[in-house]
Design a protein around this nucleic acid. Structure first.
Length: 491
RNA sequence: GGUCGGUUGGCCGAGUGGUUAGGCAGCGGUCUGCAAAACCGUGUACGGCGGUUCGAAUCCGCCACUGACCUCCA
């Protein structure tokens, strides 16, 4: 039985009960990255948001087809375009072929997403691999009369479209306001109106990525790819379209217009948008030059970072905020997330060894219901996490003998945590060290631990403390517990 | 300028017309030879001014500050 969930639909500006087009199945399309730079924290936010949705929908029983595109045509420029003239005179081989740029950053993106423990989408189509589909859609839009050809390019006629349709319905804009605000940019004689956007663009002589079309050599406009590819893989109408809030206008608005013009109806039933990551209250983004790349987070190699933050820390940090809220980056917040997550994961590891009793003093069924209810309410992961921390307290109390749990409840608790922590939130325990020397290292530290235990047994505190302090100075954390000593290498 | 949003305790961040968010830090305690770690417990809040209400931080109005979009952007 699939539980009822609510999601916030940008189109209606309210939470709605989610009812898929086909019972039990969900078609999900998400705008992926434009691969012209290293992936940054903002890419992670969007990817993690919809990974969470993907995972949750599957967990509650849906079969999901998740399509996330790679934008590899539309805005790529040769790297040399702002360099000195002499660079342009270099042999062609010395310049980056656009596909090299695409390949480089696509690989970086995939690597980062893998580290963040994102599940791969069902399909990851590239705009450059769907030129034919896009040309077909451009033809349809021309045939419908909502586009015109001009000097080898094809433009969407926004004002004409707006006469019979609500252009601006998604982003809450009025066509009159748009006209007032856009007219200032004149000089583009090709377009009838500043509002019009290119659905096919003529390639200038120096533009390298170009394809033949009925209108001459060129490339598709940015908005076309999502319209064409979502239709190809999810059908003319599909359930959910996701992306960053900054894409609602003009990108998603244009998508709606294109779908209606090409097919006579809208394609998307629920629009979901994740909010932005901010840095000192300002949006973090490549165009603002304040984006910190994911690799920099993972290595700590950035002036604003006090230390390295693991992929799971980043992931947990984001999940602790609701996806529709802005999330402000800071070292303090990230370190708080790191510690909290460690506590959560340590508790999870303890579940299986909890002592069981004939009775339970804790209510696992209620806890479980609360967790699912939180997620069903427009993916409220922070609330779900707060309930998980309630579970952490239960686990620790039972371990301390301050609460009791039956074997059945213990199983239920394990099932709940496995489902939520690993399957839905997508967290995983991060390996401490994977160096080839770890076994030897293990033996050496264990030997020192033994020496210290002997010293302690003899009440030779001086030696005992010396070993502890020196190991600590190199980065080992020594813990004395009732069961004996343990150690771990600090990250 | 237009449109939409935000303003919560030391920090991050949920939520709600009257009842505990949660995490981190702080404080107190347990444990320890001492410490660390771990665990348990715990205080502080809802931008300002009005209004509606038995009661508002939660609804309404005004003001202040701030952000996003309006060009490429997750």
């Amino acid at each position: 039985m699939i539980q009822e969930i609510q999601i916030y639909n940008t189109l209606t500006r309210k939470k709605e009960v989610f009812e898929p087009l086909v019972p039990g199945k969900v078609g999900l399309y998400v705008c992926g990255p434009t691969v012209y730079g290293p992936p940054h924290l903002g890419h992670a936010r969007s990817a993690i948001t919809f990974d969470l949705l993907f995972r949750f929908l599957k967990q509650i029983g849906y079969k999901v087809r998740y399509v996330r595109n790679i934008t590899d045509v539309g805005h790529l420029v040769a790297d040399a375009d702002e360099g000195e003239d002499k660079i342009a005179k270099q042999a062609k081989l010395d310049e980056l072929e656009p596909m090299e740029v695409v390949q480089k950053y696509t690989l970086m993106y995939h690597k980062a997403m893998e580290l963040l423990n994102l599940e791969a989408p069902s399909i990851e189509p590239r705009a450059s691999g769907h030129i034919i589909e896009q040309i077909e859609d451009v033809k349809r839009i021309l045939a419908s009369g909502f586009a015109y050809e001009s000097n080898g390019s094809v433009y969407f006629d926004v004002e004409k479209f707006a006469q019979s349709h609500d252009y601006g319905k998604l982003s809450g804009r009025k066509i009159e306001d748009l006209i007032c605000n856009t007219r200032t940019l004149d000089g583009q004689d090709e377009k009838r109106s500043g509002l019009d956007f290119a659905i096919w663009k003529k390639a200038s002589p120096e533009h390298i990525m170009r394809w033949p079309s009925p209108w001459g050599e060129g490339f598709p406009g940015w908005h076309m790819e999502c319209t064409a590819m979502s239709c190809k893989y999810l059908g003319e109408t599909f359930d959910i379209h996701g992306g960053g809030m900054d894409l609602t206008f003009p990108h998603h608005e244009a998508e709606i217009a294109q779908s209606v013009a090409a097919r006579g109806h809208e394609a998307v039933r629920y629009w979901m948008h994740n909010n932005m990551i901010t840095l000192n209250g300002q949006k973090m983004g490549k165009s603002l030059g304040n984006a910190i790349s994911l690799e920099q987070f993972f290595t700590g190699n950035h002036p604003l970072l006090e230390k390295a933050y693991s992929p799971m820390t980043i992931r947990f940090f984001m999940l602790q905020a609701h996806y529709r809220s802005t999330l402000d980056f800071s070292n303090e917040a990230l370190q708080a997330a790191e510690k909290g997550m460690e506590r959560l994961l340590k508790a999870v590891a303890k579940i299986e060894s909890l002592p069981v009793s004939d009775t339970s003093s804790v209510n696992i069924a209620e806890l479980s219901a609360n967790c699912y209810a939180a997620m069903a309410d427009d993916m409220n992961s922070p609330i779900a996490i707060s309930y998980l921390f309630e579970g952490v307290k239960i686990i620790n109390s039972v371990a301390d003998g301050k609460a009791t749990i039956t074997a059945a409840d213990c199983d239920a608790l394990k099932t709940l945590f496995d489902a939520f922590v690993f399957e839905i939130l997508g967290l995983k325990a991060e390996a401490q060290s994977e160096s080839g020397n770890s076994e030897v290292l293990n033996d050496v530290v264990s030997l020192l631990m033994k020496l210290r235990a002997d010293a302690k047994a003899n009440k030779d505190w001086a030696t005992s403390d010396k070993i502890r302090n020196e190991l600590s100075a190199i980065g080992f954390e020594i813990k004395d517990t009732k069961e004996g000593m343990s150690w771990e290498l600090r990250k």
